[in-house]
Design a protein around this nucleic acid. Structure first.
Length: 595
RNA sequence: GGACUCGUGGCUUAAUGGAUAUAGCACCUGACUACGGAUCAGGAGGUUGGGGGUUCGAAUCCCUCCGGGUCCA
């Protein structure tokens, strides 16, 4: 049993014995003691004064005394106002460390998700342009969350719903047809997604000229924007696509193929992956059956003009259109159908959508509709919302060319890592291939950690030139700590030292700090899973790395003459390395063996 | 018009309603004959956007106003 549960039970018993009031052990709240006070856990007695009928100090002292007498794990206590600080016996920590943490290769793994299946949908790009910084945040969150859920024993299906149809794709196609001269990724040397994105920009450029021409003829700007020859042609192309026109479909398939090849490369470099791809071209007609189902269940209603709606005003949401009067569906209809299809195919009892916060309203409505329809999976739906990523100059806008391209960004991170590493002269003994690999690991580690450590809900200002630092609370700091641990362990094993002789003994305060922090790992992982928040793991990992660095400075391992103590420190180092490695993996960050 | 969300030292950031608000960057002072200094020890820097309220206790909950962002019709 873990220490928190033990303390809860004893406190519950103390209150019952001392004051005759029964309190459920699980309802007792424990907090970790603040840094400046002595102790490991703090019990706040204010809520129990009614039971004790004594002042806070007395109550805390009573309970503290009782615990010290009856609970072997409580070594001491102190009272500050209504705060009862409990000092857990060093023996407990050392024994827990030797018996449960160190020997457990899967330390931190929880069983919370056993028997549950969860789908995590993330990335969801459009096929008319390459991935940008916003997608990067999305991909990292989605992938990290999947890793965390898996470590909590969920069966995870990573899904990507690709928006591969619509007017925007037709714009790229049309511009390529008109101005492309048969250019291909091979002939141009451009990555497929960048090539297609180039023609999307090209479309916009020519379209703008046409708007100007129309305005010059005296048409209002608003009207002109809707009526350029190019736009009309793109709309016709979309109609042809919907009608199954062979030529259009062929071009569409070719260009999407280029884009997918490009996306694959970007995903691979980012280190994210998917188990299932959905394509909007195959899902955009879904949902019409659901409309009928909703009408039958009287959840939806039909207006006089034969359009179909749902009234959600009772939930502080509006009325929402589900089927236009001409019988065509809207985004919501399609998402309803897709949700059903996903459930039919995989039977997940949980489903997470990683989508930007501008769609919060959409998902509230979507989930609310599914609940009203009594779908069995409705309660497990969750929108992992995250803030937009902005640039110092303001919002990213693809038309104005102010987006940060994902591939360019990764290049930049790689180069920054190289410059810094060379400056520090850290590459002795690395051949060229290893060097390149290291720069990549560090650059991407910095990027991933930077984007994941911030609460997803908060919007992020990304300054490509300055915002990524390799010192302090950063990925490379943690990677460095891991590499140093590895190197230390290597030295130890080369010297032929065996750790088998370790036995319990006293530990130094900072060694104790590490052990205490290690015991919090499972709880942290679980919290991150429940809150859908990789930032919790990121902050945990940083704290652990910091504690280890302090330990490292103050407790020499190789120079330790006492064999037993040395063995302890080696095991502590090994264990810390394992946990660092694991928590970095949960974030999708590589832990380099050396650097 | 209605709804959502964010606001914490110069910048970035943490805090299941709990104590003197957590860290990092930058700044200042110290520690390299080193188990890897991409490190460590220490210092300075705050009326948690403003004002009310609930509470023994509020960055956190409620109301209101201000500011940034977003969505719906």
């Amino acid at each position: 049993m873990n220490i928190e549960a033990t303390l809860q039970q004893h406190i519950s018993k103390a209150i019952e014995t001392l004051y005759g009031t029964a309190v459920e052990a699980e309802s007792i709240k424990l907090e970790t003691t603040k840094q400046d006070f002595e102790g490991d856990y703090t019990f706040v007695v204010f809520p129990y004064l009614r039971a004790s009928k004594k002042n806070p100090e007395q109550t805390a002292n009573d309970i503290g005394n009782y615990l010290k007498d009856t609970c072997d794990d409580v070594a001491d206590y102190n009272v500050v106002k209504g705060f009862l600080n409990l000092v857990v016996a060093e023996n407990y920590w050392v024994n827990t460390f030797y018996n449960h943490i160190a020997p457990n290769k899967e330390f931190g793994k929880t069983t919370t998700g056993q028997g549950h299946k969860v789908m995590v949908e993330y990335s969801s790009p459009n096929t008319n342009k390459p991935l940008h910084l916003g997608h990067v945040r999305n991909n990292l969150l989605g992938f990290s969350l999947s890793q965390i859920l898996e470590f909590n024993s969920y069966e995870v299906v990573k899904a990507n719903l690709i928006n591969d149809r619509g007017i925007h794709i037709c714009k790229s196609m049309l511009a390529w047809q008109k101005f492309g001269n048969g250019e291909t990724p091979e002939s141009s040397g451009l990555k497929g997604d960048h090539l297609v994105g180039k023609y999307y920009v090209e479309f916009d450029k020519h379209n703008k000229e046409q708007i100007k021409e129309l305005i010059a003829k005296g048409i209002t700007e608003e009207e002109a924007a809707k009526n350029t020859p190019l736009l009309k042609e793109a709309q016709e192309m979309l109609l042809k696509w919907e009608a199954g026109d062979e030529e259009v479909k062929n071009l569409w398939q070719t260009m999407n193929g280029w884009v997918y090849a490009g996306f694959d490369a970007t995903y691979k470099r980012l280190g994210v992956s998917f188990d299932k791809f959905y394509y909007e071209s195959q899902t955009y007609l879904l949902g019409k059956e659901i409309v009928q189902e909703g009408l039958d269940k009287k959840v939806f209603y039909r207006e006089e003009d034969s359009s179909v709606w749902i009234d959600l005003t009772d939930e502080n949401l509006d009325k929402k259109l589900l089927l236009r009067r001409d019988g065509t569906s809207v985004y919501m209809t399609q998402d309803l159908g897709t949700a059903d299809k996903k459930f039919e195919e995989y039977g997940c009892d949980k489903s997470v959508y990683v989508v930007g916060n501008e769609q919060e309203y959409h998902f509230k409505v979507l989930f609310s509709i599914l609940k009203k329809m009594g779908k069995s999976y409705a309660d497990g739906l969750y929108h992992l919302s995250y803030g937009m990523v902005d640039l110092p100059e303001g919002k990213m806008k693809s038309r104005e060319g102010t987006v940060v391209d994902a591939d360019d960004l990764m290049d930049e991170m790689h180069n920054t890592a190289r410059e810094l590493t060379l400056e520090l002269g850290k590459i002795d003994g690395f051949n060229e291939v290893e060097q390149v690999e290291l720069f990549e690991t560090l650059g991407l580690g910095a990027l991933k950690y930077f984007l994941l450590r911030v609460d997803p809900m908060k919007r992020l200002v990304f300054n490509p030139k300055e915002s990524i630092d390799f010192a302090g609370n950063t990925g490379p700091f943690i990677q460095y700590t891991h590499a140093r641990i590895n190197s230390l362990l290597k030295n130890v094993s080369e010297s032929g030292f065996e750790t088998g002789t370790a036995a319990p003994h006293t530990v130094l305060p900072h060694e104790r700090d590490i052990i205490v922090w290690l015991t919090k790992f499972p709880k942290t992982v679980e919290d991150a899973g429940r809150e859908y928040n990789p930032a919790i793991i990121a902050n945990y990992t940083y704290e652990l790395a910091k504690l280890y660095n302090r330990f490292y400075r103050e407790s020499p391992v190789n120079k330790e003459p006492d064999e037993n103590l040395k063995a302890f420190r080696v095991i502590l180092t090994q264990t810390t390395g394992q946990v660092l490695n694991k928590s970095l993996a949960l974030l999708g960050i590589k832990a380099p063996e050396r650097m």
